[in-house]
């Protein structure tokens, strides 16, 4: 997070972009959550929903600048999204094996707890795929925005070491 704080800032200061992102981003976030949470019953699903949730962050970054958004977004949050999604997916599959089924055989939940089959689907879709996709979209965006600049990386590291008292 710290290595590119002093890079050129792409803050747009365009009133059209700022205003439209301010108005639209709550709706895109809601739409992404709707797609992810209703994926088992309506068209769409957690992949599309997760992508739209991630795009909401990308819109904010375009309007308010990539570096301010990078600083506002905690690295632990995105790390938690991506790795947590994989962990929940694996844990759901292993849980069905512990309960006597095969990997991701959700009927094991029905036999053990009386949970309907589609709650297992919700677990891997919402808790697994949606988290992974939204996290990866944001990761790719910020990785592309930072780019591969080893010289600048070292230079910025020194800058950060100098100004670290101010933070």
């Amino acid at each position: 997070m710290s290595q590119s704080e002093t890079q050129n800032d792409t803050y747009s200061e365009s009133h059209v972009i700022l205003t439209s992102v301010r108005i639209l981003s709550p709706f895109t976030l809601t739409y992404g959550l709707f797609l992810a949470l209703h994926g088992t019953d309506t068209p769409g699903g957690s992949f599309q929903g997760g992508a739209i949730i991630g795009v909401t962050i990308l819109m904010l970054a375009f309007a308010f600048g990539i570096e301010p958004t990078r600083r506002w977004l905690k690295n632990s949050l995105i790390t938690g999204l991506v790795t947590g999604g994989v962990t929940i997916f694996v844990a759901t599959g292993l849980a069905t094996m512990v309960l006597g089924g095969t990997f991701l055989e959700f009927d094991a939940f029905t036999d053990a707890f009386g949970l309907s089959h589609h709650w297992g689907m919700e677990a891997v879709e919402v808790g697994g795929v949606a988290l992974i996709v939204s996290g990866v979209v944001v990761t790719l965006f910020f990785a592309m925005a930072a780019g591969f600049t080893p010289e600048r990386y070292n230079a910025v590291q020194e800058d950060v070491a100098e100004v670290s008292d101010d933070d």
Binding site: G39, T40, D41, T42, P43, G45, F106, S116, H117, H118, M121, E125
Partner: peptide
């Protein structure tokens, strides 16, 4: 599966 979206199922 008790899900109504066959693609998701």
């Amino acid at each position: 599966t008790h899900a109504h979206n066959a693609v998701s199922a």
